[in-house]
Structure formats: structure tokens, C-alpha cells
Amino acid sequence: MSQTFLDQLWIARHVIVNGVAMTVSISLLAILAGSVLGIFVGLALVYGNGVLRLIVRAYTDVIRGTPVLVLVLASYYVSSAVGIELGPFAAGVVALAIFCSSHVGEIVRGALQAIPKGQTEAAKAIGLTFTQTFTSVLWPQALRQCLPAWVNTAAEMVKASTLLSVIGVAELLLRTQEIISRNFMSLQFYFLAGALYFVVNFGIERFGKFVERKTALPS
């Protein structure tokens, strides 16, 4: 068997590419679903009535107090136990999406509550209804405020995707472990995997900075 890292890398290239593709699809799905759900969570926390707010608060407190690995395992085992045929990929993405939603919910809540009350008052004073106030005045400001923290959460999701290896989803970490079990070059390949994750997250952060610059208000 060829002993250089580069040779082994060339042999394993398809496996690694598949791993990266799987990692990206897990992360993307979890981020999208989690963010959409998270927006509703945030809205419920800010504008909901007492009962709704209590329920949603309990939801976010429990999710945030639980390690992500426990969420992934619970999702996997519980879903098959209650008869919902999810399979590891779907179960994992659901768990990550729920985790993401609790973080995004907090971010959205914080952003909306950070907007000075005077904004709502000025909107009321010119006769805007609540919906108009929210869509034209509050949400555009909140969205800008959310951006850095949201980019952070997106990077966290990419890192959390590695946990799906525990339930057998063939993402980058599991693929890396498969490769290592054949050629025993653990240091080199773990390092490669780390570098690939770094590249993905670096890309996400660069993208975030780009969007921030584009949407910044001139002063």
C-alpha cells in the first residue's frame, strides 16, 4: 500500500468529497429549517401572550440546556420507537434544526427588544398599524442586528453536523474515520478534516462580513 499521505489522499478523494457534500447538506438544511422555526420562536417570545411565551420559553430552556449529542441521539432513538420512520439523516437534521431554532429564537428576541421604543412610537404617530410597523420599521432593523450572531450560529451548526456520525450518517467525520481505519494515517487525515471544516466555517464568516458591509447604513 502506498505510504505517502498525498497518494492516500488521491485514492480517497471521492470519499472525502462525498463527506464534505453530506456535511454541507446537513448543515444547510438544519440552518434553513432552524432559522425559519427560530424566527417564529423569537416572535412568540416578544409578541406572544403569557401562555404562549411560557411554552416557548420552556422549549428554548430545555433545548439549550441539553447537549446537542443528547438531542441527536434522542431524536434518532425516540423517532423509531414511536414509529416515525425517519432514518439517521432525517433524525439528525431534525435534531440540529431544533437546536438551531432555540439559538435563532434568542437572537431574534434580543434583536427586536434592542430596538428603542421610540421607533414604535414614531411609527404609531404617523398612523401605521402593528403589521406595517413590524414589516417596515422593526424587522429591517432587527435583521441587521441579528446578522453577526446568526453567522456564529451557522458556523456552530457546521461543527454540530459531526455529531451525526454517531448515528451513522456518512458525513465528513465518519468518512474520515473510514479512511483512517484503512490506512491508519490518523494524524494526517484528522488534520485534513479539521482544515476542511475550518475552510467551510471561514467561508461562512467571510460571507457574513460581506453581507454586513453591503447592508450597513452610511454614516
Binding site: 430545555v62 440546556g65 441539553t66 443528547v70 438531542l71 441521539l73 434522542a74 432513538y77 420507537a81 414511536v82
Partner: peptide, 8 residues
Amino acid sequence: IETWIVTS
């Protein structure tokens, strides 16, 4: 279900 509720 009990296991994971207790763990969480």
C-alpha cells in the same frame, strides 16, 4: 422515551 427525557 423515558431514557431520553430523564437524560435531558
